[in-house]
Simulated assay, not measured.
Amino acid sequence: MVSVRERDIIDSTDKDLELPVFDFATIAIATGNFSDDNKLGEGGYGPVYKVKLLMTQLSGTLKDGKEVAVKRLSKTSTQGLDEFKNEVICIAKLQHRNLVKLLGCCIESEEKMLVYEYMPNGSLDTFIFDKKQSKLLEWSMRHNVINGIARGLLYLHQDSRLRIIHRDLKASNILLDFEMNPKISDFGMARSFGGNEIQGNTKRVVGTYGYMSPEYAIDGLFSIKSDVFSFGVLVLEIVNGKRNRGFFHPDHKHNLLGHAWRLYKEQKSFELIDESLNNTCDLSEVLRVIHVGLLCVQQAPEDRPTMSTVVLMLTSNITLPEPKEPGFFTERKLYDQESSSSKVDTCSANEITITLLTPR
């Protein structure tokens, strides 16, 4: 049964955004009553299912047999009805080839679902962090992925109707289409700004360890530059094939950022390159990408470039400035020291996502 408040949201969503509103019963049938056989995966938001929708919606019709991904809000998610509506409105207004397209939603009783275009090659993390799969992702493809993510972020930060800060950019939130083109997904933690606003702060820190900028993780300050930091981490992971968080090297205790910084200072950045890329990469191009990645993860937000500058640096031969020390490159020591004085509440089964940092 749909409440009056939910009906208001459905009506405004349908009218203002021309976004189809799906019937819960039809989605339940299409997913085999949300069978594990149709399940693609699960994150902090909830499970995602692959289905073929053969239906007529409350408004509009989706082509028969179209494969889509249905993201179902879990009962344990902290996202409420208003936040859900904001996310729907936020994504529905975004149109870019490097952003996943929202096709519709479902709001019925306690059920809240988003219907997206289906990405057949899954998420980026299943390729770059897997020894066998990573061999399929040669350098030209990785370079295309990096450039695509950069263009998508530029659109969010500068060219969309609203200025959007994603706040949870990571490898598992980058989906790949039939041609391995990247599309940024999962805007459940995104925040929008109007006018000349470029930053905000919060007592509720959301995001994933290893990708969060220092000022956001520690002080709750987020801006376009905190997204830039996450992008830089992602770039170095794509080049290296290993996660920033949990990175291990026998010669030191740094994370991937610290390892990349150490190699850069020793003029050995070529050692950062994933071994599977040895026969497929343009060395000068990869070294330039590493340099750009290090510029993005600098400790101070004001030292990091904007995404418009990042795109320019990736697509031209302009001279790159020297990077400064990255943020959190002594991450393990920081966490060891804070473990006795801070409380971290986790809310994601997909990697480690924190939602709150409060002193004991």
Results as ranks from 00 to 15, higher is better:
Met141Pro: 00
Arg163Pro: 11
Leu294Gln: 05
His254Ile: 02
Glu322Phe: 12
Lys225Asp: 00
Leu62Glu: 11
Lys268Asp: 05
Ala349Ile: 13
His259Phe: 14
Thr353Leu: 13
Met141Phe: 01
Val4Ala: 11
Glu117Pro: 06
Gln298Met: 11
Ser185Ile: 04
Leu283Phe: 11
Gly41Tyr: 03
Gln299Met: 03
Pro359His: 13
Leu236Val: 12
Cys105Tyr: 14
Lys112Leu: 14
Val115Ser: 12
Asp82Val: 13
Asp227Trp: 07
Glu285Tyr: 00
Cys347Phe: 14
Leu221Met: 11
Thr208Ser: 15
Leu73Ser: 14
Asn255Ile: 09
Ser342Glu: 10
Met113Arg: 01
Ile27Phe: 10
Met212Asn: 01
Lys135Ser: 02
Ala217Glu: 04
Phe22Pro: 02
Phe222Pro: 10
Pro182Glu: 10
Leu156Cys: 14
Ala349Tyr: 02
Ala69Glu: 01
Leu73Gly: 07
Phe24Ile: 07
Arg245Lys: 09
Ile27Tyr: 07
Glu179Asn: 14
Tyr49His: 06
Trp261Tyr: 10
Arg163Val: 07
Thr56His: 15
Ile198Glu: 02
Lys170Leu: 03
Ile89Ala: 08
His166Gly: 02
Val286Ala: 08
Ser269Ala: 09
Leu320Phe: 11
His291Asp: 12
Leu54Phe: 15
Lys15Trp: 09
Arg288Tyr: 01
Asp186Met: 04
Val115Cys: 12
Met212Phe: 01
Gly43Ile: 05
Lys268Glu: 14
Val51Phe: 08
Leu283Val: 11
His166Val: 00
Ser340Gly: 04
Lys132Tyr: 00
Arg360Gln: 12
Glu197Ser: 12
Lys112Glu: 14
Asn144Val: 01
Phe129Leu: 11
Gly246Ser: 14
Ile273His: 05
Ile238Glu: 04
Pro47Leu: 07
His157Ala: 10
Pro301Gly: 09
Gln95Arg: 15
Met180Glu: 01
Met113Tyr: 02
Gly210Cys: 03
Ser12His: 05
Thr76Lys: 06
Ile29Asp: 15
Asn147Met: 13
Arg191Lys: 06
Lys203Ile: 06
Glu271Thr: 02
Thr309Met: 07
Arg72Lys: 09
Asp36Leu: 11
Tyr49Leu: 06
Tyr118Phe: 14
Thr78Val: 15
Gly104Asn: 12
Glu237His: 02
Leu272Pro: 10
Pro326Gln: 14
Pro321Thr: 12
Asn173Leu: 02
Met55Tyr: 04
Lys170Ser: 01
